[in-house]
Design a protein around this nucleic acid. Structure first.
Length: 497
DNA sequence: TGAAATGTTGGGGCG
DNA sequence: ACGCCCCAACATTTC
């Protein structure tokens, strides 16, 4: 009797699961095993919203497995220790897991492979980072040529169906999941792969045709809102890409074709940043472009707190930050706006914002989040040029013209007139009374003047660009030292994987 | 996947 | 009719 272990990490699904498929192929029995790694739990990149989402999905997956004659085993401990014991206990012949590309995950898996029969299957991204390389074998560092090369590869293979039956030994004990606050019912992300597939289907049927035009409007449901599900593999990247290709092929108008292509591009951005983290693991802690580690940040803790809590006085920033706090998700356009505001207006180290996002986003992923932050900060691969500074007022007017998004997340602005919704500080006292919103009382005065902030950041970035890079060692020490530790950063490495 | 500053053009008001 | 000014509107350059 051959038994194998399906070690789940971020592929919590039965449909189109190449790892499960590989684990089933040689075996009569498969043991689905999830390991809670205390190192990851202690990481400053982990927050309770994403953990609760994870636990909820593990429970859901357990139900799905039980319906197929199996169940999910959960164990707590260091993966190497747990797997070593578990192999002996179960008599399994091999372990199958989906390859992960964060530095921590790669170190962990390589160490385990030294002693245990661990097979890694690449399906986190449709293309493995080594599949998309320049003709000289070097990785791409600019998105557009990467994307071209990516799309020149053959379209995705057909999807694997969920197995109808999985046989699992019954005598194995499971640790209970740690108790974590459950997702409150109003969080708009119910767990489960069925929910993920439903959303994907709805998006393809209703929204993808207008995606190119609608995706930037923050008040609209113009995006797929699938990121939390993709983050934990409740749906495969291949599944999403397959439908994107289909939608593009079946589009009957230019606009619909453009919608499908634009959505596909977003998925390719994810592949790009996974590849960047794989090939350039130093971006986890430092700027891709070393001379930008010379920036003298202002790093004002009070300003940072105002940003975190959504109390900057700029409605579009505050609405977005409260959406994040309350729902565990933020519209992509809003992510760029608040990131630009933190880094360029407040002149706060992008890594502070990166960490806050990781702590609160259900979809928080080390590669995509890091890539996004370095892009906005202008310090990364193919980054926005440093002098590109978002104007929060113009962005607000452009992408939430009616202020629906602002009013929804900022109830204190509910009665502010349309004329002042993007700039409530411009209301005179009579207007403030009429709107039942006193600036400085009910809603903050802006914590910074954008025009001045813009001049400041241009000067500071310009100086960093000119100053010579120090040798790598000195540079690393300085960068680490400058990271704040008020939130209990225990160890140097903290990828959530 | 910007925005501000600066330059250019052309229509209309007006002496 | 003409020149001058003003200033949108658009284009280009700069940060």
């Amino acid at each position: 009797m051959t038994t194998t272990i399906w070690w789940l990490r971020r592929d919590l699904r039965l449909t189109d699961n190449q790892t499960l498929h590989a684990a089933l192929a040689p075996a009569e029995q498969v043991i689905p095993l999830f390991i809670i790694d205390p190192t990851l739990l202690a990481s400053p990149y982990v927050g309770e919203k994403r953990l609760a989402f994870l636990w909820a999905n593990l429970r859901q997956l357990d139900h799905e497995l039980q319906a197929r004659g199996s169940r999910l085993i959960v164990r707590i401990g260091s993966p190497l220790t747990v797997l070593t014991e578990f192999l002996a206990e179960s008599g399994a012949s091999a372990i199958y897991a989906e390859a992960d590309f964060s530095p921590y995950a790669r170190r962990r898996d390589e160490a385990i492979q030294q002693t245990l029969p661990l097979q890694l299957i690449s399906s986190l991204s449709l293309r493995h980072p080594n599949e998309v390389l320049k003709s000289n074998g070097a990785p791409y560092t600019v998105f557009t040529p990467y994307s071209r090369a990516w799309q020149a590869l053959p379209p995705p293979d057909s999807l694997l169906p969920a197995p109808s039956r999985i046989i699992t030994p019954t005598h194995l004990a499971s640790d209970p999941l740690p108790t974590e606050p459950t997702l409150s019912p109003h969080l708009p992300f119910p767990p489960g792969e069925a929910e993920a597939q439903r959303r994907l289907q709805t998006f393809i049927e209703i929204s993808i045709d207008d995606y190119a035009e609608q995706r930037d409007l923050m008040a609209m449901a113009g995006t797929s809102q699938l990121s939390p599900y993709l983050r934990f593999g409740l749906i495969s990247a291949r599944h999403m890409m397959t439908l994107a290709y289909q939608a593009r092929a079946q589009a009957t108008t230019d606009e619909a074709r453009r919608g499908a292509q634009t959505w596909l591009n977003e998925l390719i951005w994810r592949e790009f940043y996974l590849a960047i983290l794989y090939h350039f693991p130093h971006v986890r802690t430092r700027s891709f472009q070393p001379h930008f580690d010379q920036i003298i940040w202002n790093n004002d803790a009070t300003m940072f707190a105002a940003w975190c809590q959504g109390k900057t006085g700029y409605p579009v920033v505050d609405a977005a930050m409260r959406q994040l706090l309350q729902s565990g998700w933020m519209h992509n356009r809003a992510r760029m706006i608040v990131a630009s505001f933190l880094v360029k207006d407040l002149l706060i180290d992008w890594r502070w914002g990166e960490r806050w996002f990781m702590q609160h986003l259900l979809d928080g992923d080390p590669a995509a989040n890091n890539g996004g932050w370095q892009w906005t900060a202008g310090v990364g691969t193919d980054a926005a040029p440093y002098f590109r500074v978002f104007n929060p007022i113009l962005q607000s007017q452009k992408f939430d013209p009616d202020g629906h998004y602002l009013r929804h997340w900022l109830p204190e602005l509910a009665h502010v007139a349309a004329k002042f919704i993007h700039t409530p500080w411009q209301m005179d006292l009579a207007e403030q009374r009429r709107a039942a919103c006193l600036i400085g009382m009910d809603y903050p005065q802006p914590i910074i003047d954008h025009a001045l902030a813009r001049q400041r950041v241009l000067a500071v970035y310009g100086a960093a660009k000119k100053s010579p890079s120090p040798p790598p060692l000195a540079q690393k020490a300085r960068g680490d030292k400058r990271l704040p530790r008020p939130l209990g950063e225990g160890r140097g490495e903290g990828d959530k994987s």
